[in-house]
Design a protein around this nucleic acid. Structure first.
Lengths: 250, 250
DNA sequence: ACCGCCAGTTGATCTACGTCAAATAGAACG
DNA sequence: CGTTCTATTTGACGTAGATCAACTGGCGGT
């Protein structure tokens, strides 16, 4: 699925898109799949992980209804998942940042239930699912971790259902900002100053809002001094206020 | 968690709430957990399944934040799962009918992320998760089946996100009716005439609508000759029309 | 440097559904 | 059998956010 790097590609250890690294040396290992594994288990994981050449912005990692083969970890960049219903409308189902795992919606029916698209140049690790099943049979830690991962996605999705079905536009957007901020913090990036990798259209679609409403709410937040926003560059000025809005039930 | 039946309880094989049955003889085995298992594997599953005395209407099977111990299969009756957010509002996250599995949202953080409440007298099978992990390590079929189950719930939840964030009240309600109809068909019950186990309030909450809107849409569907509804007794008169409405993207 | 294009902003109006309020109808209870 | 309580229906009105429309500002291409 992922194109393999040329054998003679330059091997720059400092480039974040570089494929010539392994899980042990990857600086995301603390938050990514190796999280739950012991040293010697990570070695076994490393053997089945495939690291390909970076995806360009706009390229697909996989498409809805493709035969399910692998799950993926984002190493750098940002990916969105979306599905298109019978009736033709698009639904963005998630944004994936470095260290996060996607593709698990394909397990259930052996086909991906969504498409995954790089929102910027992204390096991806591919892990064939057959190997994961195999390894999970041998390593209880691995099995446990995958059960957890899947379950956590269920909980997240249910939270998202609450968000879009019971919360106002301001609460939804505040919630997204807080979520991205927290995920950046986990990766030791600034939780208060970052670039939103997704378009207004994607944000609106994800949150069940129109792009006009997203734009207006950003405007209101800026006017209230909660954020500064310039195109995709976001500075959070009052994270507590945003958390408060996000947690509000009206 | 489930109260065990008295040892001297009468053992009436014909009673659907009866605990004195096993997976092999259970008429739901074709659609429930044993679905993916071989004969001899079902025997192993049987050994870990605990069958308790029926839950009365309004009783909880587990509560949000309880320590996660088991997943559950509905044998008869109907259960709703719901969670209460920080801000205090309730979100119904699912309805579970006989043959369906609930509690998997607890795996991720070792606590249930929702509460489960019997909407009518319900018989429940409890399966301790530690045993499932154990068995999954030994039986690849079992492991595979659980990965699938979890993944399918993710896909369902994502569909539900689309439903509540992009569809009209009529589309949402039609979709629910079609879903329950299909699930009844799977259990060899009439797909066209059945009792809705949940209140209008639950329906509204699940679909992100107020109870007034639910009531009005039921009324409209009845006036259009698509259904007949009397309190909770529903007769579907034109399932194709409902499917068409449910699939519509506006 | 000019053009064309897309992403985003801003404003004016519209509408599906929420909110509030009142009426009705079972079930549950003594 | 009335009485109370709760679930549901029905009606009148209000509103958050959608829709429609016009404008603005980067940015890639030549």
């Amino acid at each position: 699925m992922i194109a393999v790097s040329e054998p003679n590609a330059p091997s720059n250890k400092n480039c974040p898109h570089n494929a010539a690294i392994n899980c042990t040396s990857c600086r995301l290992s603390a938050i990514c799949l190796p999280l739950a594994l012991a040293q010697d288990e990570i070695v076994q994981l490393d053997e089945i992980v495939q690291r390909g050449r970076p995806l360009q912005k706009g390229q697909h990692l996989y498409r809805e209804n493709d035969t399910f083969t692998s799950i993926f970890a984002v190493r750098s960049g940002a990916v969105k998942a979306y599905s298109v219903s019978d009736s033709g409308e698009e639904q963005v189902t998630g944004f994936y940042l470095p260290g996060e795992i996607l593709g698990m919606d394909g397990i259930g029916h052996n086909r991906y239930a969504s498409s995954a698209l790089a929102m910027e140049v992204s390096a991806i690790c591919e892990i064939p699912f057959a190997n994961i099943e195999d390894l999970s049979g041998k390593l209880p830690n691995m099995q446990k971790h995958f059960f957890k991962l899947l379950s956590q996605e269920i909980v997240e999705d249910q939270r998202h259902i609450t968000l879009v079905s019971k919360h106002t536009a301001e609460e939804r957007l505040a919630s997204l900002i807080v979520s991205i901020s927290a995920r950046n913090a986990r990766r030791n990036l600034s939780p208060l100053k970052f670039r939103l990798p997704m378009s207004r259209t994607d944000i609106g679609n994800f949150l069940g809002l129109t792009i006009e409403t997203v734009s207006r709410v950003f405007g209101r937040f800026a006017k209230q001094g909660l954020i500064e926003i310039n195109k995709k560059e976001l500075t959070v000025l009052d994270i507590e206020a945003l958390k408060h809005i996000a947690a509000l039930g009206h």
